[in-house]
Each structure stands twice: as structure tokens, then as C-alpha cells.
Design a binder for these strands. Structure first.
Lengths: 154, 154
DNA sequence: ATCAAATTTAGAATATTTTTCTATAATATT
DNA sequence: AATATTATAGAAAAATATTCTAAATTTGAT
């Protein structure tokens, strides 16, 4: 694990806000030369601190504005069952996030589709076709208050 | 709302996977000229389909690997209370996502901190300091099965 | 504290990429 | 079918990323 100094942290914050800034712009923000910025970024990429760069889309504009949170309980919790379940869930493109969690349910999923009809189709044809699911409980997004990909760097 | 053809959709998928690809690389993938790719991207940016470009970090490497999901119920639901609550929550950097949802609770939050100690500090000093919170219920991530920012384009 | 090694930085040179420009081709409109 | 609009390609120009060299700074050991 690499040691991040204050400049690295500032740089990570800038790149998490906008990764399309030029190194010159970054160098001005940070008070460094272009090469210094370039080398720092390279290091952060190589060490895996920066996982990658992506474009973020507007859900509404691509007609995927229906968000559901599905809680799932498995019928059994043997290694095999868990591994198989997780693989199958990860393969569903509608499932953007899946976490194994503590509490009454085993998993929480964030599912993205166009509307309730599509969600129904997803449940019937995809999710509940997965083996070893005991029970599910879904909640639906009424409004998105905040959605950020920006991890605060300590 | 702009009409997206198959090429736009393919382009959006490519850019959601890796926004650092050059236009030449994209043009090869799509079988177009560099200029055609350039103009399409410009259009997608201007119309707001592409909201922006960001660097994605590795939670573990920046010591923010503790994820909590907090369900929150408000004591009242008047316009004023809701607006104030949402503003205050959105200002907390530990809260990466916040959704108003259907069901037993009003909101679900995704909170990112270093560890349980920090989570406790967050709850005591920040979250529960927010007005009008009735009750909360937290679940903790045991394992991240999937976490993608990629919206499937229909 | 002092020295040597390693790392970081800056500025210039080079390579690559983005952006603009012009002309042509495809698509839509009447 | 004729015209206007939009999309595309290729070349030229501008901007940017990357490499290189050398100087400066930091680090670690003595």
C-alpha cells in the first residue's frame, strides 16, 4: 500500500471530480509542473489506487430511471451455494451493485431498469431463476437525493 | 431527449468501460473515422447523456473499505423537513448515495468510512445531529460482490 | 549533522491526440 | 426529384501527453 501525501490526495480529489482535465490544468491547481503531475498519476494508476476512468451517464436520458433495492435471503449458506449465487447475480447487467451484508437478509442489490414493468420482467425471468434464493424484499426509489462516485480521501 | 442509434449505444458502452481510450481506438472499435467519433461524443456531452468523466478509486487503497447501509425514518414528512433533511445529508461526504424510497423506512443511505470506529463517530457526530430523524437502522457490508457504474444502454 | 542513494521535480524535445476545417456522402423534408 | 440538413472522412492545425535529461529535494544510514 503506497503512502499518499497531501498532493496525491488533492490530485485524487480533482480526478474524481473530472478526469478529463489536462495535466496542465491539474498542475496549475496543484502548483506543480506538468511532468510532476504526470508522474504522480502514473504511479497512482500503477499501484491500483486509481482503478480506471469512466464516463458517467444520465440515467433518465438512457431510459433507466427506475431503481430498486432488493434484499435477498438464501435458503442455505454453504460455500458452493454462495459462490454460485454471487456469480450469477454479478452477471446480470441490471444489477449495478451487490453486497453481502449483516442483518435480516444476506444480500442487498441495486437494480436499474426502465420502469416497473421491466422490473417485473427482471424479477420473474432473471433474479428468481437464480438458484438457492429463499426470499426477497424489494424497495423502490422515489427520488435520488445524492449519488456520487467520489470517495473522500482521508 | 436525443435519439440514440446503435453506434451511440456502442460508444456509450465503450466510454463507460474506459473513458481514457483515444478516439482512434474508439473509431477502430466502431468502424468509424476519428472525426465521426469525436462529433458523436461532443453531441452526447452537450445533450447531457454523458454527465462527465471521473477517475474511480480503490476503496481499500484509500482506507475507506467499511460500507454501511443506513435506513432512516423521519419524524415528520412536511415539505420543509424533507428538504432540510435532504440538504444536510447530501452535504455529508461520507454519504455517497442517498435515496428516498418506498417501504418501512423513508431513506436509504450508503455510507463509506474507514472502519466501525469511524462509523460510530459518523453516526454520533454527524448523522444523528441532523434534524427530524425518527429512527435509523444500519446494515454493514460483509463483502462487495459487484459494484459497477455502467448503466446498460437499451 | 553529513553523505550517498533514491525519488521527485522542472523544462525542453518529441510523439500522440484532439480539434478544426473543407469537402463529400448519406439522410430527411417538402 | 430537388433541396436542406446532418453525418462522415481525410488532411491540417492546435493542444496535449509522453519521454528525456538534468537539477533539486527527500530519505536513510552512518
Amino acid at each position: 500500500m503506497p503512502q499518499l501525501d497531501a498532493t496525491d490526495k488533492a490530485l485524487l480529489e480533482l480526478l474524481q471530480n473530472d478526469s478529463k482535465q489536462t495535466n496542465k490544468a491539474l498542475s496549475l491547481s496543484l502548483g506543480l509542473s506538468v511532468t510532476a503531475v504526470y508522474e504522480r498519476i502514473r504511479k497512482l494508476e500503477k499501484s491500483g489506487v486509481i482503478k480506471g476512468y469512466v464516463a458517467l451517464l444520465d440515467k433518465k436520458q438512457v431510459n433507466r430511471n427506475f431503481v430498486a433495492f432488493c434484499h435477498i435471503k438464501l435458503v442455505q449458506h454453504s460455500q458452493d451455494y454462495v459462490v454460485r449465487f454471487e456469480k450469477q447475480v454479478a452477471n446480470l447487467e441490471e444489477v449495478l451493485e451487490c453486497y453481502h451484508i449483516s442483518g435480516d437478509y444476506d444480500y442487498i442489490l441495486k437494480v436499474l431498469v426502465a420502469d416497473m414493468q421491466e422490473f417485473r420482467t427482471f424479477m420473474v425471468n432473471k433474479l428468481t431463476k437464480i438458484d438457492h434464493i429463499g426470499s426477497t424484499h424489494s424497495m423502490f426509489m422515489i427520488n435520488e437525493v445524492k449519488h456520487s462516485t467520489k470517495i473522500p480521501v482521508p
